[in-house]
């Protein structure tokens, strides 16, 4: 259960999130809205990268905002970025090892964990490939593998579907649907692809100008007139 209460983020004069209040309990929750609505800002507020001026984010009774950013990760918050953040000169396995070390996963468990997530994300063959030599899909999958490997409670995905082909999208859908049952993590996913959101998200929140304009079961939200006007443009 994630409780967001009165969350406000300001960049100078720009109010990127305006007193946002939201309770999230579904396994996969979508977050949509036009460009500049504050979607990335919300994920950044979770991670500790956005200047939060008010409010709280409480997950399982813990207020995230009181923790240093890296401690939030160790506590169980994982995320991917809108722009993929794969490091060129280390291998896929090294990306995963870094997360395992940082989160204090015991050595004995590391190899099994690594094989498990590599298999799940379909990049077992790229285990020893350098970041620079991965294709865009493999980069995305490396990021998702990084998210999964320390068994987080929550995973934030910021536009994971950007630039993927139809076949690759199918695999992404599979990963998102299976994550809760296999790894126990709840997912909040930002994306512009309404079909993807419709397929995988039980409920969806819509932001516009930093304000929540709709929240509920995905189908209902996508039919909402205000949402259509603000976002879907039809």
């Amino acid at each position: 259960m994630i409780t967001i209460e009165n969350l406000t983020v300001k960049y100078g004069g720009v109010v990127a999130l305006d007193s946002l209040t939201l309770n999230i309990s579904d396994d996969v929750v979508g977050l949509i809205g036009p460009n500049g609505a504050g979607k990335t800002t919300l994920t950044n507020a979770f991670s500790g990268f956005a200047p939060v001026t008010d409010g709280k984010v409480v997950i399982d009774g813990v207020n995230l905002l009181h923790m240093a950013p890296h401690k939030r990760a160790c506590w169980g918050l994982a995320r991917s970025f809108q722009k993929v953040q794969v490091v060129d000169d280390i291998t896929v396995a090294d990306h995963l090892r870094t997360v395992l070390t940082a989160n204090g996963v015991p050595r004995s468990a590391r190899n099994a964990r690594m094989s498990e997530v590599l298999d799940f994300t379909n990049i077992t063959d790229e285990r020893d490939t350098l970041g620079a030599d991965l294709n865009p899909f493999q980069k995305r999958m490396t990021e998702i593998a990084k998210c999964l490997i320390d068994r987080p409670r929550i995973i934030l995905l910021d536009e994971p579907g950007g630039g993927l082909s139809e076949g690759e999208m199918q695999h992404l859908r599979f990963i998102i649907r299976e994550t809760k049952s296999r790894f126990g993590a709840q997912i909040i996913m930002v994306d512009h692809d309404v079909d993807l959101i419709r397929d995988v998200c039980a409920s969806t929140a819509v932001l516009d100008f930093g304000k929540l304009i709709a929240f509920g079961p995905t189908e209902d939200v996508l039919r909402d007139e205000a949402v259509k006007a603000a976002y879907l443009g039809r």
Partner: peptide, 24 residues
């Protein structure tokens, strides 16, 4: 080893490193 991997990630992006749990 560990420090080199952590440094590589910090060099790429401090936010990314922190999000991976690295104490930058």
């Amino acid at each position: 080893t560990g420090p080199g991997r952590a440094w590589a990630m910090i060099r790429q992006s401090e936010a990314n490193a922190m999000a991976a749990g690295i104490n930058v």
